[in-house]
Design a protein around this nucleic acid. Structure first.
Lengths: 153, 153
DNA sequence: ACATAATCCTACCTATCCTATAGAGATAGG
DNA sequence: CCTATCTCTATAGGATAGGTAGGATTATGT
């Protein structure tokens, strides 16, 4: 299960991708528009900045901007920043904190082998989907829906 | 990240798949051989029994057996029993506890749409991999390794 | 230089879940 | 009836997620 942190991050990034016209957007605007607790969002944005996805401008007239075009920000990157990778078992994590004590021999642990397949499947989706894709999916779905609404009237 | 519960479950099931010759195996044997806290394992086995993966025999000479052949037990089933499904967002969970408050309109929520793709990818692996596969993977890896060892001597 | 608007940083709190344990109860075999 | 088992309920400690507070720092405009 992805955490609220990650969900909030994706919502905030989605907003930035749709509303950014070059100048920075305020934390408070993001928090209000996307319904995210202000202070909590602050911490999330800092993480995203340190992860290279956002850049900020301090002081009056400051705020946050995307550091890259939406098409160059993968969902995998965002998840990885907020969740510290998305491994299903410790021993498959990117930032390896050591082998999990359960599988005596990592190379032969059945669980590890299976979860490695799962991780590959997850990563292939996460790495191939970008922020731009996410926004587009959402827009398309909304348009589809309003079409259907029109027909039904 | 899968919980220790699930890891222990898979280890115990793996042991049962490999050592079962029809008669029940003791909790204490499973706990000892697979290095799992006895009482904790007890709870896990009960869950697996209620989930239809194991059956038990009470009283003297009792113990646990697989309720199905290993090739008919998917890893997905086990994960689903122990973790209550493996959705990445609440609103995609099997046992829907309601829509997540974040995505106003579930049908148009970009996060939901992306995570739905991820879930499909996960499920396709988890549903197509069985306990028998897991045990086999592990065995094959072990054999490969011992071959390499032989060469190197 | 100064007031103001913004992000940045450090620390903290609380509830929930994960892991684990204890002990009495129920059931079957001999 | 005795013993070996699983079964059930309750509980406890620790970690993590989610959220909050307040002040420090930095930039802008006048």
């Amino acid at each position: 299960m992805i955490s609220k942190k990650t969900k909030y991050a994706l919502k905030a990034l989605g907003y930035l991708a749709e509303h950014s016209v070059g100048d920075p957007i305020l934390i408070s605007e993001l928090a209000k528009e996307e319904n995210i607790p202000r202070k909590f969002l602050e911490a999330i944005l800092v993480a995203l900045r340190k992860g290279g996805v956002l850049k900020s401008k301090i002081g009056k007239g400051g705020g946050y901007m995307l550091a890259l075009p939406p098409a160059n920000i993968t969902i995998g990157k965002v998840v990885s920043i907020l969740e510290g990778g998305f491994a299903l078992v410790e021993c498959l994590n990117d930032n390896v904190k050591g082998v999990c004590e359960e599988c005596g021999d990592p190379a032969c642990c059945g669980i590890r082998l299976v979860m490695s397949d799962v991780k590959k499947a997850i990563d292939s989706v996460l790495e191939s989907t970008t922020l731009a894709d996410m926004v587009e999916k959402s827009d398309t779905a909304r348009q589809q829906k309003s079409k259907i609404m029109d027909f039904s009237i």
